[in-house]
Nucleic acid binder design. Structure first.
Length: 460
RNA sequence: GGCCCCAUCGUCUAGCGGCCUAGGACGUCGGGCUUUCAUCCCGAAAAUCACGGGUUCGAUUCCCGUUGGGGUCACCA
């Protein structure tokens, strides 16, 4: 049975890269009628952000990538929150300790520095500082507060493992640090927790981001020490900023929240993400999640780190908006923009077809419909523009049936003999020079309001 | 800096030894449609397949090196 997992840490709003991982894991599990597991990796109490767990659940739900097992739905391998599995890690740490695959290490908290800067040729390596006064048990270690459990690393050995996307990769053990496995507060580090949980939760395929590649030897060692078999492992390329650095807040938008607030559709984002490192066999650009699940295979993922191109995402989002039914788009707009509900139902409904091909994101609704909220940009009109107003007023007054065809007739007539173009009318009526098709918009806007508008600007 | 990974148009990519004088998509530019803006349709420019060696009858495709980019080297994940 295929069982994949998403390891998410509750440190804030989910990163779009987390969704990228979720997509591959989800799709592969679904393709093989397997299960997709969500595990909350909350072993760092310093970085924990209140409420972010809920936001992870909500985000996955928003994308339609809900987990079959996880803290929310539970499952056979409860609990799915690492902070609730401490005894389990202690048990396995004790086993390592006992077998001599791990050791207590004195390491005062003040020395647990931040990331070092490696500019010199000196290759820093953490070592056991002292052998004296080792704690007798994990319990005692935690009480003392200045000791940790570290991984024992063999000397002068090559560790080779197979990354299913890149092939065999070899590290020398001199490159592998004696990683802390249990912190002084008794919490495990990622390295211990992930190996233990993947094993216990019977994860069949590990799909994770490339930044884990360098620490995989540690995990290989743990699998060996426990005498477990490591599942096939896939390291997907990391998403990048336009400057090619790892996708980060500093250079781009990473938060799922941002994409939501911008009015991107989850289906469009997923479609876009799917095309990063993978391609449709028929080179199709637009396809559904179901189609992706059917065609996707982990072995087809490419190792190249792609740049996250917002421009293409916008295009894709536009395509999805355009392909929505009127009802769907109406609901999307209503959900996205509470103001939309202030419009008469009929007005909104009539507006939808006009909006469809003009919206890239849902946030485009507002600028496109300003006039319907009686918001006009303050503009000045020149003499030719002003001179048209009276003619337009009389023209509009004569229109019996207020339809866009008739409205256009009036406009066209003036256009012909005054030698003006459409943008002039556009500017007069809306204050802008571009937007929805004018006659259609005015038809929805109503004759009364149109005349009122003209009256008003005539006084300017 | 050590180690590891990666390398086809600006970007996402197809290509898995001959079909490639390299295909598609976004973007860009030009044109058509037209009632502004879009949508839609057509067309163009855009990659000496990073560079240099091999292997081969034949390399974008295989191997090695160089260069460039990225990741990693925390009691963070």
């Amino acid at each position: 049975m295929v069982r994949t997992r998403l390891a998410a840490s509750p440190t804030g709003y989910p990163h779009i890269g987390t969704i990228y991982q979720a997509l591959f894991n989800y799709a592969f599990a679904k393709k093989h009628k397997g299960r997709f597991i969500l595990r909350i990796e909350d072993t760092d109490r310093n970085r924990f952000v209140e409420g972010s767990e809920e936001v992870i659940f909500d985000s996955l739900k928003w994308f339609g990538l809900t987990a079959d097992e996880g803290p929310l739905s539970g499952g056979e391998y409860n609990p799915y929150r690492q902070s609730e599995r401490l005894e389990i890690y202690h048990k396995y740490a004790a086993e390592l300790l006992e077998k001599g695959y791990a050791f207590y290490s004195y390491f005062p908290k003040k020395d647990a520095g931040q990331k070092k800067i490696y500019t010199s040729e000196k290759n820093q390596k953490s070592t056991d500082l002292t052998d004296q006064d080792r704690p007798a048990s994990l319990k005692e270690m935690i009480e003392r507060g200045d000791w940790v459990v570290r991984l024992k690393v063999p000397k002068n050995e090559k560790i080779t493992f197979k990354d299913e996307i890149r092939g065999e990769i070899t590290f020398d053990t001199s490159e592998v640090t004696e990683q802390v496995l249990i912190k002084s507060d008794g919490f495990p580090t990622y390295h211990l927790a992930v190996v233990v949980d993947d094993q216990l939760m019977k994860i069949s395929h590990i799909v994770r981001a490339e930044e884990w590649l360098s620490s995989t030897p540690k995990h290989v060692l743990l699998y060996r020490y426990f005498n477990w078999e490591m599942p096939p492992i896939y390291h997907t390329a990391t998403l990048r900023n336009p400057d090619k650095s790892k996708l980060s807040k500093r250079h781009g938008h990473t938060s799922v929240l941002w994409f939501k607030e911008q009015g991107f559709l989850p289906v469009a984002i997923l479609n876009f993400l799917a095309l990063l490192g993978w391609s449709h066999p028929e080179e199709k650009e637009i396809f559904s999640l179901d189609e992706f699940i059917k065609l996707f295979d982990l072995k087809d993922i490419r190792p190249v780190a792609p740049i996250f191109d917002l421009v293409k995402l916008r295009w894709m989002n536009q395509q999805y908006i355009q392909n929505s039914t009127d009802e769907e788009l109406e609901k999307l707009i209503l959900d996205f923009n509470p103001n939309a509900a202030k419009l008469p139902e009929e007005t909104l409904r009539n507006l939808i077809p006009l909006l469809k091909s003009r919206m890239e994101t849902l946030s485009d609704f507002e600028p496109l419909t300003e006039m319907f909220f009686d918001k006009f940009e303050v503009v000045e009109f020149d003499d030719t523009e002003k001179s048209i107003i009276p003619e337009l007023v009389t023209g509009f007054r004569t229109v019996k049936e207020w339809s866009h065809e008739n409205i256009f007739k009036v406009i066209k007539e003036i256009m012909l003999h005054q030698k003006v173009r459409m943008p002039v009318f556009y500017k007069l009526m809306t204050g802008r020079t571009r937007g929805l098709p004018l006659p259609e918009a005015l038809e929805i806007y109503s004759k009364e309001k149109s005349l009122k508008r003209l009256e008003k600007i005539n006084k300017l």
